Simulated scan of single mutants.
Amino acid sequence: MSPHSEKTFPSSMSSAMFLLILCKIGLREKLQTTSEKMVNSSLSDEEKGIQDKESKEESILAMLGIIGTILNLVVIIFVYIYTTL
């Protein structure tokens, strides 16, 4: 092997490398532009209170949905047992 010999890649490998480099460059540019657009937004106390109230309501509704599902399953089991006897 001579010191001047270079590795040769198949054409599909070189085109794949080219596409990866293009994607990397595009991603870098996109990240730079989005970081410039980022704005520090702080919520006021009123908005935080509203969000806390909404999250509490959502958690209550989720709990009621879970309880209702469990009760429906219990009823289905009892009806199945009753009808098979």
Rank of each mutant, 00 (worst) to 15 (best):
T33C: 01
I50T: 13
L73C: 08
M38I: 07
L85K: 08
M38G: 01
V79D: 00
K7N: 10
I67W: 02
S11I: 12
I60Y: 09
V74M: 05
F78D: 02
L19I: 02
T8D: 08
I67Q: 05
Y82W: 10
I76P: 00
M1I: 02
S15A: 14
T69R: 08
I25P: 00
M13E: 15
D52T: 08
S59A: 15
Q51K: 06
L43M: 09
L20K: 04
S5V: 13
P10S: 13
S15T: 04
L43T: 05
L85R: 09
I70H: 00
L85M: 09
D45V: 13
A62Y: 07
L31N: 13
E47D: 11
I21M: 03
M17T: 05
L19C: 07
L61Q: 12
H4E: 15
V74C: 07
I50G: 01
I81N: 02
Y82S: 01
L20W: 02
T84C: 06
F78L: 06
G65F: 00
Q32T: 05
K56S: 10
T34H: 03
L22V: 03
A62H: 14
M13T: 14
T83C: 03
K48C: 10
K37V: 06
D45R: 15
I77C: 04
K53L: 08
L85V: 08
Q51N: 08
M1V: 07
A16I: 09
T69K: 08
A62T: 15
V39T: 06
A16L: 11
S14E: 15
T33G: 00
K30A: 15
K48T: 05
